[in-house]
Design a protein around this nucleic acid. Sequence first.
DNA 1: AAAAGGCCCTGGTCGC
DNA 2: TGCGACCAGGGCCTTT
Length: 274
Amino acid sequence: MPELPEVEVCRRGLQPEIEGERILGAVVRAPRLRLPLPPTLGATLAGQQVVAVRRRGKYLLLDCRGGVGDGCLIIHLGMSGSLRFVQSDKTPERHDHVDILFARQALRLADPRRFGVVLWQAAGEVTHPLLAVLGVEPLADEFSGDWLFAATRGRAAPIKPVLMDSHLVVGIGNIYAAESLFRAGISPLRAANRISRERYQGLVQAIRQTLADAIAAGGSSIRDFVHSDGGAGCFQVDCAVYGRAGASCRRCNGVIRQIRQGGRSTFYCPACQH
DNA sequence: AAAAGGCCCTGGTCGC
DNA sequence: TGCGACCAGGGCCTTT
């Protein structure tokens, strides 16, 4: 499932291909994903030039200029979304919901589970509600141990679901939350407001390193996919704890445990994480 | 305000 | 072999 690193790698793959290019139109084959698709997307995008490819959290933002009016195409890949370039006349498969048409190729969105989002935001409007509520970027300077310590005062919930709260910090999903906590030696069960400032500094470093490693791994594995949501769903092919229930911890040889938090699986090493 | 649970969706896996 | 139960999971929503 695409978390921040996957989306960032996707952005980097898209940028050289479409920045500065003109959109000829769009084909929309599904009425809705997580949200209804803009019914007039093709007409809105026709003639637009892509002037920038940005990322905010797990959202891809394609800034556009020209056409019927400037704006931004907002794409979220949900859990199972992927983008790839195809020849425009290539027969779409069952879950190929949207094509963005360029002169030499089409950018095709597939999303079997339909948790993704494609929206158009006209320029000049207030920040889209989906983006307005997002927290800080974990790779930005602002995201520091001091900041996270301060932000978690009064949060009695376990640290793992707190890390996954996109209103606090964006882009950290189930996999990287588990991996980062393992790297930092912090139990996913520990209350967020019972972690010291010093340990938060270590956690922030662990998060940054985990995300950076995954981006690096993903950047080296791109082929024709702009983004691949392949089996493991994470570029960090070599997860230390995620998906390893019952296996032995690589640090202490203890047994990796799987529990449920907030309806979601959590993997951790009870011996290494406190 | 925070926290917990439900819901959306499809494909893969597992037990009978 | 077929079928139903269950799981995966981001992010919204509602309820407490």
